[in-house]
Computed example of a mutant assay.
Amino acid sequence: MPTTAHRPAPVRTVRDEGYFPPGSMLRRVQAEHAVGLLYGQRALCIGAIKPLNYVGTSEHTANKREPFKRLVRTGLAFEQVFFGTRAEADAVLRYVRRMHERVVGTLPEDGGATPAGTAYSALDGPLMRWTVAVMMDSAEVLHDLLVRRLAHEEREALWQDYRRFAVLFGTPEGALPVSYPAFRAYFDAEVAGADAHLTDEAHHVGRFSAFSIPVPPLRRPAMSVQDLVILGSLPERVRELYGLPYHPAQRALHGAVCAAARHARRVTPTRLATGRNTAVFRSVAAEEERRIRTGRRTPQVV
């Protein structure tokens, strides 16, 4: 009697969709070009108001002649974690961990209410919390302004994803607000806090990071609009610390520009409005390199 040869069951492979798979709130928000292109500039501008965070980063920056190339590397690394496989993200996380282990020191001079000699470490929970907080706030605010307003449950899901993002980079879970309302209360209190202060260098770098991005000639006409979007999105206290005027006419124009952006997003196919921003990031680094090569001044700290 004929027999049927035994065939082993096919091995099912599990697709590596990363730490933030399609459908996760962080991936959905950060994939919006309007968010992904601007959140980093805004986050750096706000983040600089905490002297320990700013000085710790600045004191351990190797080449201050190319600030935008460094920012581009950071943006590309974060996109690997947002959108890449776990293997790709883990490579970034290992590299960042090694860098963070070297970022230790003390504040060389008073930073407002923070006295000289105060110790800092890139692996300190409160400092890591502030870093992820400005990213979360920027992503949330820009999505509201330029895409659509998030529902409360979406804000909660976004913060929970950002909590996971922070833990991946080594932030102690216990250092992070447990819910979106707790995050919002923390962030607003930090912006209003007595230790919010801009050192002279932070004032310079935070401002040019937000408003002096080097872009190829074809993109320059749009930069005034982009600058207005970021200016109007900043907390009032942050604008005051930078001495940035924001007049009623600017406020009205900001509202009109953002409303137009939201309308445009509703009629733009998702495949055109979302995705990685690798090409744009690299064009910024290339433009900075071109300017340096041709002897044109680029904002820098020396």
Score class of each variant (00 low, 15 high):
27 R>H: 09
170 G>T: 04
259 A>E: 10
171 T>L: 03
127 L>C: 04
179 S>A: 13
201 E>Q: 10
188 D>A: 15
94 R>T: 00
296 R>E: 15
261 A>G: 06
175 A>N: 05
114 T>H: 06
281 F>N: 04
234 L>F: 08
45 C>S: 11
168 L>W: 08
11 V>A: 11
245 P>N: 09
233 S>N: 01
218 L>W: 13
163 R>C: 02
178 V>N: 13
185 A>R: 15
104 V>N: 12
282 R>I: 09
293 R>S: 14
271 R>M: 12
94 R>W: 00
270 T>A: 15
289 E>P: 04
26 L>G: 01
27 R>N: 10
96 V>K: 01
105 G>R: 09
76 L>G: 03
124 D>Q: 10
168 L>H: 07
296 R>M: 07
210 A>T: 08
75 G>Y: 01
227 D>F: 07
74 T>M: 06
163 R>F: 07
97 R>Y: 09
207 R>N: 09
154 E>Q: 12
204 H>V: 09
117 G>I: 10
235 P>W: 03
296 R>C: 07
44 L>H: 12
295 G>Q: 11
210 A>P: 00
200 D>E: 12
199 T>S: 15
70 R>I: 04
299 P>Q: 09
177 P>F: 09
18 G>W: 01
286 A>D: 12
112 G>E: 10
161 D>E: 02
137 D>G: 04
53 N>R: 01
62 A>C: 06
241 L>S: 03
85 T>F: 06
44 L>A: 11
268 T>S: 11
170 G>V: 04
270 T>W: 15
266 R>T: 14
264 A>T: 11
38 L>R: 08
35 V>G: 09
184 R>A: 15
33 H>Y: 09
107 L>M: 13
95 Y>M: 03
97 R>D: 11
137 D>K: 08
60 H>A: 05
85 T>K: 06
253 L>D: 04
246 Y>M: 06
300 Q>V: 08
80 Q>T: 13
181 P>R: 07
